[in-house]
Structures are given as C-alpha cells and as structure tokens.
Amino acid sequence: MAIQQKDRARPAVPLNERLFRLDEAEGGIPVLLGWRCPDCGHHFFPHRTICPGCGHIGLEEVDLSRRGKVWTYTIAHQVPPGAIVEAPYVIARIELPEAVLVSSLITDCAPEEVRVGMEVEITPVKVREDEEGRDVLAFAFRPVKKPAKETKS
C-alpha cells in the first residue's frame, strides 16, 4: 500500500489529534485517546462528551491499550475515491481490552494471513509530509510478532 513505515529519526505529527497522540518516549508510537465514564466505567473511542451507557456528562480522556484482537475484518479489493491505500488492503475492527472496537487498517502481514481473534498491536504509518517537512502519521495495527510474554518497559 502507499502508506509507509515511520522513520523514527524524523519529526512527526499525528494526522488527527482528536484520535491519538504520539508517545515520544516510546519512539513515536501512537496512543489512542479513549474516553472513560467516571460513573459507569465504560470506555469509548472516538471522542464522546456524554456517556451513552448512563448519560453522565463529561467523560475523562484516557490512554487506550496498544494491543488488542481482531474482532472482524475484510480484505478490500477496491480503493474508494480520495483514499491513499492500495488494494488489496485489510480493514478491521480491533477489540481492545477496554471493550471498545476501533476501525483500523492491518499492516505488516499478507491479507490472507489475517484471522478473527488474531493478536495485534498499534503501529504508526506515514500518510504524507506536512509543509514543515514533518511526517504526518496515522495509526494501524499489525500482528504481534512475539507472543504476549514480553512486558513494555
């Protein structure tokens, strides 16, 4: 696909600051911004102000987990007008431990290798450069290479 891997040496900005930030301490990994209800504890993504579970007004921004599982997916063979991907590409709904579903591309694997239930982790993808020469990044998910034992430092 036309999107590229992030070059860690280059300065980068998120494509949409309402959806995620870049964790510079972790080498610019995207961190999805979830919204947690202080009353009932449900998490939401993307942004909401009012909890659809209990009606509480004023949700709290929280970092969402970097890993999840493929809840469902499709291999798209046709690129819609205006999109920067190249066919075939994988669109998925990723289930995070906070019980939210996130729509995302799946990268770094052959489309036919994707499975429901597959463990995936968030990864940055470059969509373009801005006027100042910085990489503009989106997030995608990719298969977890090593099984879950490792802990992040």
Binding site: W71, T74, A76, P80, P81, A83, A92, L105
Partner: peptide, 30 residues
C-alpha cells in the same frame, strides 16, 4: 460507483476505512 458515507469522517476516508461494502463484509466475516 461506490458510495462514501459520512464525508466529515475524513481520517477514515483517507485510509479507506469507510467503504459501505466493507462494513457489510466485516459483519459477514463476524
């Protein structure tokens, strides 16, 4: 041609995430 829902969701549109057959296909896969 293929309809594009929700033009305001430009992030998803740029990444090709919002195609209507894709939504049905993901429900089908589930």
């Amino acid at each position: 041609g293929m309809l594009q829902p929700g033009g305001e969701r430009s992030y998803q549109a740029l990444l090709g995430l919002t195609i209507l057959p894709g939504a049905y296909a993901m429900m089908a896969r589930r």
